[in-house]
Nucleic acid binder design. Sequence first.
DNA 1: ACCTGAACACCGTTCAAGT
DNA 2: ACCTGAACACCGTTCAAGT
Lengths: 207, 207
Amino acid sequence: MSRNYAGLSRERILIEALHIIAGRGLGGLSMRRLGDALEVEAMAIYHHFPLGKEQLFTSIAAYVASPPPTGAAFHDEVGEEGEEQTEVEERAVADQRPWDQRLTSWAEAYRERLLTYSGALSLLAHRAPRTPNSATTWALMRHAFDEAGLSGEEIEMAADALHAYCIGSVVHQVRHSDEDGEEALDAAAWAARFRFGLRSLLRGLAP
Amino acid sequence: MSRNYAGLSRERILIEALHIIAGRGLGGLSMRRLGDALEVEAMAIYHHFPLGKEQLFTSIAAYVASPPPTGAAFHDEVGEEGEEQTEVEERAVADQRPWDQRLTSWAEAYRERLLTYSGALSLLAHRAPRTPNSATTWALMRHAFDEAGLSGEEIEMAADALHAYCIGSVVHQVRHSDEDGEEALDAAAWAARFRFGLRSLLRGLAP
DNA sequence: ACCTGAACACCGTTCAAGT
DNA sequence: ACCTGAACACCGTTCAAGT
């Protein structure tokens, strides 16, 4: 074929990659299959991800780990503050509920997102992307844990613990929900367990 | 070569695979490279792992996630109670320290093991092996959380939360310790953060 | 700039064959 | 039972070429 300006973009490639991962698992994602799904030769992808599959993986990890209501994750690494981001930050600060309710909302949204893209979960184990809104999350944490009475390094440690609990909960659920065991838990039961542990952790973190 | 009875075994293959993962990462583990390291044709591995690489991965996950002082993880799936296991169980029950100290010891040992084989961490996200001593761990949890005052389903939820926190902490550390950020944490700092969150979680779990 | 197509080195797995 | 060696389909990536 002569011309094939397929309107390829990083965003389209990323979305299609997530489709394939959702359908056939992470191992089912190959550059050739991704090219087929995009109706393009596989090699065309390298024009948008010059560093190849590893770069694609990193971008997927960034997309999954960040909770953007807009397409903030697709902005280039240059950390220019988009309008959406400031908006999110303002909303986070404007939230007048008590600190534990704010963190509960954040944690449940984060869990939801990780669960939605659970097929890409293993990518998060070795890739820490510089997500544009990680600063926003950090601001939210600092604000909430400060209100809770923590100070200095305690805030950092509490934020780490909360992140760890969220990621670990989803990993734990994904690990065990494929089980054929006697009593397999449904989604609601897993959510209840998540909230139980979350409540306990937040209670224990407050001095 | 005519004869090459290389004394191959599931255990030798597993150990060598972990070596390769430690040195070159999970992506660097190929059947052919594994064969080379064992001084054997790659295809010989299929005699010990007939289901191929997927079975090898599951076995690695089982080995990493189980804390056997002996080689308990290599026993066949047939759940015969080995002597070592009963021994471990007795030791766990004989531990006279308060419940939170017992769980702290368990959690720190679990974390240590996950950290030792952190290269295989992503395998744990999608494989829940029937580990021989998972029953032992469960007994320890039940005993400890029962002593803490939890009852019925609360004990299960607390045990899940503890597991989730441990896995998530290691994932979080591995994700971020490769960072080139301004203040990279050393191993001791990460351990301190782990203990801080663990203490908080256990405190919050007690009624 | 954006995409193609052939090529290269590597991969997992099957299968018949050797001892 | 345990391992070899050739073969097959597939993979990631490079590179010269097309528009």
